[in-house]
Amino acid sequence: MSTKNWPLWEIFVRSKNGLEHRHCGSLHAADADMALENARDVYTRRSEGVSIWVVESKNITASNPENNGELFEPAHDKVYRHPTFYDLPDEVKHM
């Protein structure tokens, strides 16, 4: 058994310029350089990407689904943040 296991990295791929990087999975690598090389082989074998980000998984802080109520529900009753909340005369065609 190896003394130390390779850490886990989260992989983000930009499929083409103009689009954002998207999370596509994770992999193990000894360091960031190797994570980039492995990500190229594992996640872009069919030209799926033009740019790769790798982030060591332990550096990601995620919200807890148990707190989803406090975090996200307050937005539900703020319908005035959407354009359809406002009444306009029919004569106004584009606004």
């Binding site: 190896s2 003394t3 130390k4 390779w6 000894a30 360091d31």
Partner: peptide
Amino acid sequence: GEWVRDAAMAHA
């Protein structure tokens, strides 16, 4: 492959 994995980690 164990020595390769260990060497990669030591190098990193």
